[in-house]
């Protein structure tokens, strides 16, 4: 099997604070990789590095066969990002949003129109395609947000908490969508705080805490190894039951990232 993502000693430091500490992992083609960890563990920073949005302090990664530091433009062509925040303009309609981002990937004319039609059908939003996105419900917005990341039919898809804050219907719809993407041979990196979801969807999970990967295996193997009934229990076993209020560190990163 080809490895679609190979991270080697990936490290990110913000002003002396190490957000991601020499992590290495592989994601194979057609796999769903569940990337788990408490808030502030370094998940989003890792994804930002893999998406070429943040330069690593140390180490590198090969995504889709391209180096994230040396060939960022090639990497960008093969990845799709569904970030924590919606990447949609509320004042523009669904079609206008998809058209704009499609054009950035060099899609134009009939090809683009057909792709937009296909994607809107896929998430059942064709009826609302000419309404401004600002008027959409949270579930509709998230469905559109996901297909926005798929506009150029990427091989590798990063989904950062795609089902957070949604109703059970939307959650089910998006989980089915993710399964379909896997069926079509796409490689998916999924972060989530819902352990049931990770257990249900992932072929392999990586648990990150304090910037380090502390577990990397299939959900079944992890449950067996730690003798737990669910991934939820494994997660708590590994990361502890105390709350993570490392606010000072988070705030420092927040300032640097400009959030």
């Amino acid at each position: 099997m080809d490895s679609m993502i190979i991270a080697e000693n990936l490290t990110k430091k913000f002003n002396g604070f190490t957000a991601v500490d020499h992590i290495s992992f592989k994601v194979e083609k057609g796999e769903i990789f569940g990337f788990l960890g408490p808030n502030g563990a370094g998940k989003s920073t890792t994804i930002r590095m893999l998406c070429t949005l943040t330069k690593p302090t140390e180490g590198t990664a090969v995504v889709g066969g391209y180096d994230i530091i040396k060939q960022p433009e090639q990497v960008r062509k093969v990845i799709g990002l569904v970030a924590e925040k919606l990447i949609l303009y509320p004042q523009l309609t669904a079609v206008e949003n998809l058209k704009f981002f499609g054009k950035l990937y060099g899609l134009r004319g009939k090809q683009l129109e057909e792709r937009i039609k296909e994607l809107l059908d896929m998430v059942l939003l064709t009826r609302f395609k000419d309404f401004p996105v600002g008027g959409y419900s949270t579930g509709m917005r998230q469905r559109l947000n996901i297909v926005r990341g798929l506009i150029h039919d990427p091989e590798i898809i990063f989904l950062d908490e795609p089902t957070a804050m949604l109703d059970p219907q939307s959650v089910q719809f998006i989980r089915d969508l993710i399964k379909n993407l896997k069926k079509n041979g796409k490689t998916i990196v999924l972060t989530t705080h819902i352990m049931e979801e990770a257990e249900l969807l992932s072929d392999k999970v990586g648990i990150i805490d304090h910037g380090k990967i502390i577990a990397l295996d299939s959900p079944e193997n992890l449950k067996r190894k730690y003798n737990c009934a669910s991934l939820h229990e494994v997660f708590l076993e590994l990361t502890g039951r105390t709350l993570r209020d490392s606010a000072s560190n988070n705030m420092r990163i927040g300032v640097i990232r400009g959030f």
């Binding site: 925040k85 950035l104 926005r148």
Partner: peptide, 12 residues
């Protein structure tokens, strides 16, 4: 808004 990431992640 977070839309900047969408533009930055495009191959331009």
């Amino acid at each position: 808004q977070g839309t900047m990431d969408g533009i930055l992640v495009a191959p331009i």
